[in-house]
Structures are given as structure tokens and as C-alpha cells.
């Protein structure tokens, strides 16, 4: 197992771990681990240290939508140009180029259905290269980023076993 991959495996699950603890878990020198982390950040492999929040457990309203977008690619630019025009909107959380029945998958976060609808109507659908959009609202998140949101782990093993 190479150290890089192992570092990434650990911090993908727990970005708050400090360098000291990380070096203990890896059995590596602290200074090496710190150097590797810095390199990973500089190379853009590590893009940020975010927090996963289950907003549905708060009283703050959030609406998420997946929008399938069909577009006409531009000569010389392919899809990059139009993708950029879309991802620059702060309410857009993710944009992926897809294979299959449509071109861009746009994930959007808004305060209400109305706000999302407004974005699609006024901004997204009116872009020159956009041929069509299909908006799907997320009703419930069961699992996100590898984490099951529905229930907590419970240890049901016998307390002591040989």
C-alpha cells in the first residue's frame, strides 16, 4: 500500500485528523506525512476539507435538484465552455460531463423549489447552447459521500468473546 493512497483513504473519511495522529496510524515520520499532505494540496489532489452536513436535521430549508442538461458543444471548446458558464453560478454545487442520454449533470442547491425553478427558467435554459433541461428534485438522502445518513452504527456483538 503506498502512503499517498493510504493518506487519502484516511482523510477522505476524516479530514479533521491532525498530522501527528495521521503519522501514528501510518507508522511514518510526522515530517514526511506533513510534506506529503502539502504536496497533495499543491497538486490539487486534495481540493478542500469540507464538512458533511445533514441539513434535513436542522430547521434550515435546503432544496437539492439534479438537472440533466443537453447542450450543443462549441467548435474547438467541446463542452468546457458551456460547463464553465454553468459552474460559475454559486448555487450550482456540481457539474459533470456525462456519457449516455444527456451531456451535463448539474447539481443545484437552493432555498426553495421556487428558487431552483427560477434558476432553471431564467438562467440555465436560456443559455444559447442549452437544448433542453430535465429537473429532478431530491426528496430524501439515504447515503451521501459513503456515509449512511439514516441510522447510526450500533455494536450488537457479545461483550466478551474468545
Amino acid at each position: 500500500m503506498n502512503t499517498r493512497e493510504e493518506i487519502l483513504n484516511i482523510i477522505e473519511k476524516n479530514s479533521r485528523i491532525d498530522v501527528h495522529e495521521l503519522s501514528v496510524l501510518l507508522g511514518a515520520e510526522e515530517i514526511l506525512v506533513a510534506g506529503e499532505l502539502k504536496a497533495l494540496e499543491e497538486e490539487g489532489v486534495i481540493c478542500g476539507y469540507h464538512t458533511m452536513i445533514d441539513w434535513s436535521k436542522t430547521n434550515i430549508e435546503k432544496v437539492n435538484a439534479l438537472i440533466e442538461v443537453k447542450v450543443t458543444p462549441t467548435r474547438g471548446q467541446g463542452f468546457d465552455n458551456i460547463a464553465e458558464r454553468i459552474y460559475k453560478y454559486p448555487e450550482v454545487t456540481s457539474v459533470y460531463l456525462m456519457s449516455g442520454g444527456f451531456d451535463l449533470m448539474v447539481i443545484l442547491e437552493g432555498k426553495s423549489l421556487l428558487e431552483v425553478a427560477g434558476f432553471v427558467n431564467n438562467k440555465l435554459a436560456t443559455l444559447d447552447n442549452v437544448l433542453s433541461t430535465a429537473t429532478h428534485f431530491i426528496l430524501k438522502k439515504y447515503k451521501d459521500h459513503g456515509t449512511i445518513l439514516a441510522k447510526k452504527y450500533e455494536d450488537t456483538r457479545e461483550i466478551i468473546t474468545p
Binding site: 455494536d155 456483538r157 457479545e158 461483550i159 466478551i160 468473546t161 474468545p162
Partner: peptide
Amino acid sequence: SLGVGEPD
């Protein structure tokens, strides 16, 4: 307990 002899 840290007394268990099976995977978690």
C-alpha cells in the same frame, strides 16, 4: 469493552 474476538 475491548474484549471481543470478532471483527466490528
